[in-house]
Nucleic acid binder design. Sequence first.
DNA 1: AACACATGCAACCGCCACCGG
DNA 2: TCCGGTGGCGGTTGCATGTGT
Length: 490
Amino acid sequence: MYPWELECKYEQGFVCDYKEMSHTKNQREDGMLSKDQTESPLIDDGNCGGGAAGGVVLKKGPWTSAEDAILIDYVKKHGEGNWNAVQKHSGLFRCGKSCRLRWANHLRPNLKKGAFTQEEEQLIIELHAKMGNKWARMAAYLPGRTDNEIKNYWNTRIKRRQRAGLPLYPPEVSLQALQESHSTSAVNGGGKAPHDILQNNSYEIPDVIFDSLKANQNVLPYVPELPVMSASSMLMKGLGSSQYCSFMRPTIHCQKHLQESPAFFPGYTGAVKDECPLFEQFQDDMSDKAARSFRWSFSIEPDPAMETSQSFGVFPGSHALSKGNFSASEPALEAVKLELPSLQYPETELEWENRGEPLSPMGHSATSLFSECISASGSSLDERPPAETFTESHVKSEAADHVLTPEIQKEAPIRLDGRCPDTLLASNWLEQGSGYDKDQTIMTDAIATLLGDDLSSDMAAGTSISSQAWGLDSCAWNNIPAVCQMSELP
DNA sequence: AACACATGCAACCGCCACCGG
DNA sequence: TCCGGTGGCGGTTGCATGTGT
């Protein structure tokens, strides 16, 4: 639908609808110009409009409906593109970039407005796992959605999950990947160099993420071939997600601990670091360059860039901290040149967001708790992480934001749209718990295995809180070091 | 009611790739 | 091959609104 249809929409109040939706906050729009627009028309820097394109001071700030109308009219007549000509031909005092952005994000026909649907949310998660912060490419899979919208959604989601202490990606995927990587490494040999393992073509890990997409390739008009994503990459992404950035120090302890403690990964003595480059990530003072040199584990052709241990650091698409900053991620793999698909997204069983992830009664996810426990147990008495990494900032925020008593869980509404906080997802997950026995088993087994003997000496008896509630049997719960449990208790 | 803080979103900025002259 | 223009992309910012105290 383009100019000819736009006219119809426009005349029927399309702009008005938009105005209501996106500018409810801009009461200034009609008549009430923003401060930018009235008091000090900003001078652009030259890149965008140059402030004075041909001596004309270009306006910045929120668009008015009048400007929208001008732009729509212009596109209607001249089509998209050649945005710098808009100002010349339409008298709109906006730079071309601004016009393009406005059109693409707000005025373009067929734009969806409003909250993301569950299907869209899940797709975003999947796509982000695959592509990283390639918002434009992701937008190609979400008809009617803009990259900016997706980006904003993701960023807010990251913040939410950070606050919630949740991983970005589903824990069962991470744990499953972990198990897979273990079994695979057992075959390949634990002492194998990381890059060898990762590049080994036989190092195949079942798809766990994109089945929902791939399964429909024969149904949908066009679904770009989605390369197999390494589950171990997912694992690393999950563990390396922003959530864990706040646990940088504990993670280092984890690595140290892992190295020192063969029992942690039974049968994988000393190979943990190799198997889990994430741990190496935090040990080395990793550069962005190193981060970007990482390639996916399923690389067919050996990549010279991977010949160095530095190659194993940040995982594409992750928001792993590098030198304290979020690093922009590279595409998960050689990003496929995506065409605009006309997708119909089927319902899938992997509705992570929908069901959330298993949370402890204290609001901890299994993986969150897992990471914490590793962190805590991995710290010897003289290496205990600073309190603020654990007992203060994290626990405080979780206590404040995500304590879910059984009563609260009962009352917590099931998430019906995409805007409920993660807290609610937890209750939702719990309510649907019966359908996730497998996941729980995986979780339980994995945690029990991972925490296993090595932590047994730290066991505490504090099982007053039902560990069953988040899928851990009492044994597994008991295997959680006291420091973890204590840190969660009010 | 007032204030502070949190949240979400629109818009901007800077960089980069592509293309044509 | 170089260079300027253009468009696209990802990161960041600013602000209105929502929420809690």
